[in-house]
Design a protein around this nucleic acid. Structure first.
Lengths: 136, 136
DNA sequence: CTCGTATATAACCAGATGGTTGTACAACCT
DNA sequence: AGGTTGTACAACCATCTGGTTATATACGAG
């Protein structure tokens, strides 16, 4: 699996409030499927599906204890996703050395669609336009 | 919009390699839709849709310059998502003070489904089971 | 062995996602 | 004015997602 595939799986797994709540619960320690399902207005199979998504992303692993299959958190994917985000965060923070290397890294790691290197578009002057944030 | 909704939108926007590649391109500076579309084997409307997803998450904003609607990166959602991830990363890093406060925070911020507080399950002994990472 | 409990799996469904083509529209260029 | 360019939008389609119910499997207790 490529790094890009892993990021896909991780970010997708994190893009759901139920799954994030499950992770929050697991941050307090291992838990069985039933224990994890209990706080939600949702059936057990639905929770099992969410768990499968989390497991595919490697965020959660499965143990065994009698009939139970307790889940626990796994660290690695969090680090990978966190590092990815941090690269972007640092672009504004300004507190990084060698922006060029940082940007090369971004290009190499992502987009097998080989992006043609061309300078910043010269068709308009920076700071010349109005910017808006999408509402709604 | 709640913090949870914003995390949903942000993580969902990041869970796609095309969109991450677009962000990587924008990290090098503003770009028009056509410029952003050029490296991809995809039509312009498809890119516009991806941009709308990124805008909904607030990761990208829209400017105007003649017919162009150049896009630029916006910092805030990266920080929010990054901070969320960092909380979990620190759980293993161990280098945090006051784990209890950290965990309270996790519960308050997420899951309006009020999780019943109960001690760690005593039905099995920690370290007693085999754990596996989902393959495939 | 049989029963209850914990979990997984299959079949199904509505709605979202990610792409397409075709078209509309605004702004620039002659 | 008329043509070209950059972008958006609508309609359409296949696939994925997130839930359901029903059923199967695995294990421990009597």
């Amino acid at each position: 699996m490529t790094s890009s595939d892993r990021l896909d799986a991780t970010f997708h797994a994190l893009a759901d409030p139920t799954r994030r709540a499950i992770l929050a619960r697991l941050a307090t320690g291992e838990a069985s499927v039933m224990e994890l399902a209990e706080p939600f207005a949702m059936t057990q199979p639905a929770i099992s599906k969410h768990l499968k998504v989390l497991e595919r992303a490697g965020l959660v692993s499965r143990g065994r204890d009698a009939q139970r299959r307790p889940r626990r958190l796994e660290a690695k994917p969090f680090s990978e996703a966190s590092e990815w985000l941090e690269k972007y965060r640092r672009i504004w923070a300004g507190n990084f050395q060698r922006l060029d290397a940082l940007l090369d890294q971004l290009k190499v790691n992502e987009s097998k669609a080989k992006e043609k290197k061309r300078g910043p578009s010269k068709r308009y002057v920076k700071g010349d336009h109005r910017w808006r944030i999408l509402k709604r």
